[in-house]
Amino acid sequence: MDLLQAIVAHYNHWIIIFLMVSGLYIVVARGNMIKKLVGLGLFQTSVYLLYLSPGKILGGTPPIISEQHTVYSNPLPHVLILTAIVVGVATLALGLALVVRINEAFGTIEEDEIFAGEEDE
């Protein structure tokens, strides 16, 4: 019974950690730069969940004040993550622009091939 309670209480954290770790794995292990950016995005979205899930209060409603409700979830993480998402897409676009330029300069977006080309010189 204790085990079941622990699972219910921490399931969100464990999924967040799984997403974070797989994002980290993609960034470290894969050489393709667009795949690396996707991994970076996975890591980023796991951080969004990490911020949002403790702000949820069971039985609460979205933080839009009205007469019928008294319990609201915490609005502060929503604000932080809202701006983080838009900044995230802006930095993603910057990364993609760099990848496009790298592809034009080296003819490849694989890290290993770029390193191999540099060693030949």
Binding site: L52, G55, I85
Partner: peptide, 15 residues
């Protein structure tokens, strides 16, 4: 589900 409706809207349109 986590009550973050504003964020969900942003994520659906941006992400």
């Amino acid at each position: 589900v986590l009550d973050a409706v504003d964020v969900a809207m942003t994520e659906a349109s941006v992400g």
